[in-house]
Design a protein around this nucleic acid. Structure first.
Lengths: 168, 168
DNA sequence: TTTTATTTTCAATAATTTTTGAAAGTTCAA
DNA sequence: TTGAACTTTCAAAAATTATTGAAAATAAAA
């Protein structure tokens, strides 16, 4: 397989995976393109390489920068902005996880907690059962969150992974 | 808050969360409706409660049954099919996770392995770096998968969660 | 068997999400 | 300042995904 072909397949695969998990295809593809390049890339190069519009390229890059997994890179004597991806896999994987948790999971957990409290005094069997269901979901999520938070906070996820593999 | 109101909020929240993570809103809502009910529910009741068409209700139920997190329930003297959701949170959460892993992550991991092998002999700096990036993603995913598999296989995820919380 | 109740399918339609591209905005060198 | 190079914005168009609803299929009752 030629290198360019391998890169293209990586970009396509990454884009498809993103789509299936609620990450915009273009955003995932720009990420993959930057990941697969050893040098900084300009917006024009992204547009050309992925065959997407300037607007799309710009918004995708902004989003990746917001996520904290892509950085701007100034190149001396050039007015264009260039971009590089965070290459430490564990680092960007954790940043994406943290960001999605904050944005999508935390609000849901707040609501679950609210519903759990609001139904705590239900007297009917139906009400009690609903309360239990919500509470269980909330408690499980809470436990998983606590574990995740500790892993994130430690900044030594690599060691923890080894530890887990050893223990289990 | 009235019980019906709480249930409705649970259904809405669940539907929205599903959408954000690539699970069809109706499927997630039907799941939530079944989770929040203590008795089996028919297709007609689902249609009425969620205000969705028969086709949509039917396909959503089928998908949940395929996932293995909703069961048919026959009620004596009634020709209609009734449905109940698996109520053990850890059980259905793991089933959904396993299903999505198999369907969406495994094929990606196969491709990553392929790309890692295909670029192993790259001589250029660019080629070597790409190989490393792909290999790192592949290896991290592999490690996480092994941990996940052991957790799933043990069928004692509840104990493992406690263990993790104790260790970390 | 025939009738009736129920479930399933799927082409057509609707809703949502993504992408485009050109105009407006910004920055910087001259 | 001015104007060229570059970036950002966002309404409109395109693409994708979800939903409908009625016809076909199936299953049970008469």
């Amino acid at each position: 397989m030629k290198l360019e072909e391998a890169k293209q397949q990586f970009i396509d695969t990454w884009g498809a995976l993103g789509s299936e998990w609620g990450i915009n295809k273009s955003v995932a593809q720009v990420h993959a393109l930057l990941l697969s390049s050893s040098n900084p890339i300009s917006t024009d190069e992204i547009m050309e390489s992925l065959v997407i519009s300037r607007g799309n390229a710009n918004m995708s890059i902004r989003q990746l920068i917001d996520y904290g997994i892509v950085y701007k890179k100034h190149i001396a004597g050039d007015r264009k902005e260039y971009f590089v991806a965070e290459k430490d896999v564990l680092k960007w994987a954790m940043k994406i996880a943290i960001m999605r948790k904050k944005k999508e999971l935390d609000p849901v957990m707040d609501i679950l907690k609210e519903l759990s409290v609001a139904t705590a005094n239900e007297k009917s069997d139906d009400g009690k059962e609903f309360h239990n269901t919500v509470k269980e979901i909330q408690e499980l999520t809470d436990q998983l969150e606590k574990i995740a938070n500790k892993v994130f906070a430690s900044n030594r996820a690599d060691l923890l992974i080894k530890l887990f593999k050893f223990i289990i």
